[in-house]
Design a protein around this nucleic acid. Structure first.
Length: 838
RNA sequence: GGGCGGAUGGCGGAAUGGUAUACGCGACGGACUUAAAAUCCGUUGGCCGCAAGGCCUUGAGGGUUCAAGUCCCUCUCCGCCCACCA
């Protein structure tokens, strides 16, 4: 009977759902627990992308194996559903984001379920559901009460044409994504979270996490701790001093000018009258220049002299004070001492404006370059009493000296800045704050009993035109009473960023229905932390940093028992697409060139095959919809194919030409099951044990592609021999995490009871994982000359192997007339004669 | 500019410093078939050779080693992330 995935797959999906075999227990009980989590998706209207099933298949494979190995597995799925696309769609069409979102969720859920993943759907969460965001708001209030949330006026992206605030994602190369007009910075009141208070802990606790090295270093760079010193410079003729931050206090003697950020508060005071007009114009220009452009590397540096001079505290030299937009107001102190001889940015600036360059460090070895700055460590020259000191020692001594003289002190700065936590948007969690207009006249948190503050129903989602949130136009909703004094109050109209919901969803999954608390403390203790977290590398910094920050706050509040939320993290490699660009520049997606026949047609027309591998995007017509693949090949083939593409953690192209391979493999498995002839349990015993070992180990190490390879080799061998029942049972167990539907169908076909998904994962005997005989390579001077077949038992016996080698004509040929100077024997692998021919 | 990763047959890709090219795709030849599909068997990195066999080959060039796709140095190209961070 031919295997029909169209009927078999839905049948087993229903059977699993009816029997609730993937439902996680409330607590792990006496089983070891395993919490395996996918980064939950934003349910976009476009539906699933092939990148989604890649990660989900991987976690599903591991979840299924762990379950079969006797773990209590928590494997949930949910929706990170607040976000810009639904809101923008609402602005264009008037369809409420809630409607769009629910539709997208339904579509995503259907697609995900059609792949047969073993999620516990009873734990599904949706960040836009008031029963969920009630607790997002509650958690915000905990941060607020801990004094970690505050209001501040900060610049936001503002489009003067659309008259609306823009998210960073909506600004492309300094221009508004929608109208193309240049985006300005505009100061607005924002809610901020004090993530900087946790900078050190966020950095230090990276140690001990089983995360990819690249992610750890990205987080570390993002936090950007640098050690150095603050130094105060007096200003000639003024009472004020300018504080600068430097990581190289040892180059103070080489500071020949100073640069302030255009936004620096002292600029207006110190600027001499003759320079006033010029300076004001420069500042204005800098304000109008979008940050994107301003911070573009390699851009020609611009600046202007203020007319004022600072006094270098180490040698009392007067150095000119300049203003330049390459100095950023928000990093360090917004002012730098410039050492053009030892900093390349300063060097470029000094060259442009013909400023003095003074060398104060010589390299320990070799010559310093003359056309650029020498930024390395070395020994001090021309530095007064400090001359001759090595850079590190100099730093210590000068810092102590500065402290002693009251001119400065050791300092640590971070690139990490406080987190701007408010958005001028409708489709987000309302920030649960009332601005009292009565007696209290301050921001007052909404009492917990009044949560959630739900989003009001509105007809229009248009921005207000002032940059305020659309919520501010809904007077009925805004006007309220102050929870503290009962006087007039106005609700906060800003909403939270999309990150808010994803900062704690992994905690909600352990207790998703709780109406009295965000989660139960006992359950938290039982299930946390997440044992394995899988998702795209695009979240390497922001989401993972924000979630860690909230988690640490929860830890301080006694809400969680572990310092870190995600014990082990892996990123899936991005799936790229083949595109072909023809001579006219038009793109042809994979659907036009997917199969070899089509490719040949293109070759036949003489059209050059300009194949490119690049990110999938609608405009390049190379986006692949999983539905089509599932309908023609089935969910099992789709899952297998996703895993067979290449290394899970590396970038790889989606090449539909080879899905035929995994599809044929499944057909072969089915034929094998149907045509079983009773065989001897001994025949394939060693291969059976070896395959169990290989598949188990490769899954554990995320080498899904080669785990499938091992299964293919097993099937090829079984097809060519007489497979016994045990061979087939084990094959189905090993196959079941990858192709669960066929595995269940086959399990039933062989007359087994229950679900293969609930069978015990097979174990192996290490002694039986090697073949009866092994090949030993015999090399002469590293070159392969002969391969010996020796029994496994003798493969470690050098005397035996050498005797065999010397019995081989091929080897003898190379050994006669040669003097063996060295024999290298690697047990079970290599015998290498190093010879000297006279 | 910085960080991280990658480059292996016609294609996707395998290879704890130890037999490079496993597995799959494609191609070629054959079997089965009236025929096709499906399936099965065989061949398939390059060069020389009737053959036995030999030589070469993991982006380029050097090095370490008995032995290098793998380690080290220099360079080229590609991808991702960050980017004037003092």
């Amino acid at each position: 009977m031919p295997y029909n995935h169209r009927t078999v797959e839905p049948k087993w999906q229903k059977a699993w759902a009816d029997a609730k075999i993937f439902k996680s227990p409330t607590t792990p009980g006496d089983k070891p627990k395993f919490y395996i989590l996918d980064m939950f998706p934003y349910p976009s209207a476009a539906g699933l992308h092939v990148g989604h099933p890649e990660g989900y298949t991987a976690t599903d494979i591991i979840a299924r194996v762990k379950r079969m190995q006797g773990f209590a597995v928590l494997h949930p799925m949910g929706w990170d559903a607040f976000g810009l696309p639904a809101e923008n769609y609402a602005i264009q069409t008037g369809v409420h984001p809630h409607e769009t979102t629910q539709k997208s969720i339904a579509a995503f859920r259907r697609q995900i379920q059609s792949l047969g993943f073993s999620y516990d759907w009873d734990r599904e969460v949706d960040t836009t559901d008031p029963t969920y965001y009630k607790w997002t708001q509650w958690l915000f209030l905990q941060l607020y009460k801990k004094d970690l949330a505050y209001e501040a006026v900060v610049p936001i992206n503002f489009c003067p044409s659309c008259k609306t605030g823009l998210a960073n994602e909506e600004v492309h190369q300094g221009a508004c994504e929608r109208c193309g007009k240049t985006v300005e910075k505009r100061d607005m009141r924002q809610w901020m979270l004090k993530i900087t208070l946790y900078a050190d802990r966020l950095r230090e606790d990276l140690e001990g996490l089983d995360w990819p090295q690249s992610t750890l270093s990205m987080q570390e760079n993002w936090i950007g701790r640098s050690e150095g010193a603050y130094v105060d410079f007096a200003i000639d003729g003024h009472k004020e001093t300018v504080k600068v931050f430097t990581t190289r206090p040892d180059t103070l003697f080489g500071a020949t000018f100073m640069v302030l950020a255009p936004e620096h508060p002292l600029v207006k005071n110190i600027c001499t009258t003759d320079k006033n007009a010029e300076v004001t114009a420069y500042i204005e220009r800098a304000r109008m220049t979008p940050e994107m452009e301003r911070t573009e590397a390699g851009r020609k540096k611009t600046g202007i002299f203020t007319g004022a001079y600072a006094i270098n505290p180490v040698n009392q030299e007067n150095i000119p004070i300049w203003i330049a937009d390459y100095v950023l107001a928000h990093y360090g102190t917004g002012a730098i001492m410039s050492v053009p001889a030892h900093d390349n940015r300063d060097h470029g600036f000094a060259k442009t404006y013909d400023l003095k360059i003074k060398t104060v460090v010589r390299p320990a070895m070799g010559q310093a370059p003359t056309d650029t700055a020498f930024e390395g460590d070395g020994f001090a020259i021309d530095s007064g009493a400090f001359t001759g000191l090595a850079t590190e020692e100099f730093k210590k001594q000068i810092t102590a000296w500065l402290k002693e003289k009251g001119l400065g002190e050791r300092a640590v700065t971070y690139k990490l800045r406080d987190w701007v936590f408010s958005r001028q948007r409708y489709w987000g969690e309302p920030i649960p704050i009332v601005h009292c207009k009565g007696k209290c006249a301050k921001a007052v948190p909404v009492p917990e009993k009044d949560l959630p503050i739900t989003l009001p129903q509105v007809e229009r989602f248009q921005p207000t035109g002032t940059g305020d949130s659309p919520l501010s136009a809904i007077t009925d909703w805004v006007k309220t009473i102050c929870p503290e004094c009962g006087g007039a109050g106005e609700r906060e109209t800003n909403t939270m960023p999309q990150w808010a919901g994803s900062c704690w969803y992994y905690l909600r999954f352990i207790d998703p229905k709780n109406t009295r608390a965000a989660w139960d403390k006992e359950l938290e203790k039982a299930w946390n932390p997440v044992d394995l977290y899988i998702g795209g590398a695009e979240h390497a910094v922001l989401h993972l940093l924000y979630a860690r920050f909230w988690h640490k706050v929860f830890y301080d509040l006694g809400l969680v028992t572990h310092k870190e939320p995600f014990k082990r993290l892996r990123h899936q490699g991005m799936i790229l697409a083949f595109s072909h660009q023809d001579s006219k520049g038009a793109y042809h997606g994979y659907d036009e060139i997917e199969f070899a026949g089509e490719t040949s047609k293109l070759i036949a027309t003489g059209e050059p095959l300009n194949m490119k591998i690049e990110k999938m995007s609608k405009s390049k017509k190379n986006v692949v919809n999983p539905d089509e693949v599932i309908s023609s090949y089935g969910a099992d083939a789709m899952r297998l194919y996703e895993m067979f593409l290449g290394d899970f953690e590396l970038t790889k192209p989606w090449d539909m030409r080879s899905i035929e391979g995994v599809s044929r493999f499944l057909a072969k498995v089915w034929r094998l099951l149907e045509n079983q002839v009773p065989g001897d349990a001994k025949t394939n015993q060693r291969l059976r044990h070896k395959t169990i070992a290989l598949v188990s180990e490769r899954i554990e190490n995320f080498k899904f592609n080669t785990a499938i390879t091992a299964l293919m080799e097993f099937v090829n061998a079984l097809t060519g021999s007489q497979a016994c029942k045990e061979d087939l049972d084990i094959l189905l167990k090993l196959l079941s995490p990858f192709a669960p539907h066929m595995a269940e169908e086959g399990w039933a076909l062989l007359g087994n009871q229950g679900f293969v998904s609930q069978a015990a994962w097979p174990t192996f005997d290490p002694a039986l994982t090697t073949a009866e005989s092994v090949g030993i390579a015999v090399q002469i001077n590293g070159k392969l000359r002969e391969t010996l077949r020796v029994p496994s038992g003798e493969a470690h016996n050098q005397v035996y192997v050498e005797a065999q080698a010397k019995a081989s004509e091929k080897v003898v040929k190379y050994l006669e007339n040669a003097k063996v100077t060295k024999v290298i024997f690697v047990a079970g692998r290599i015998l290498n004669y190093v010879v000297h021919t006279s």
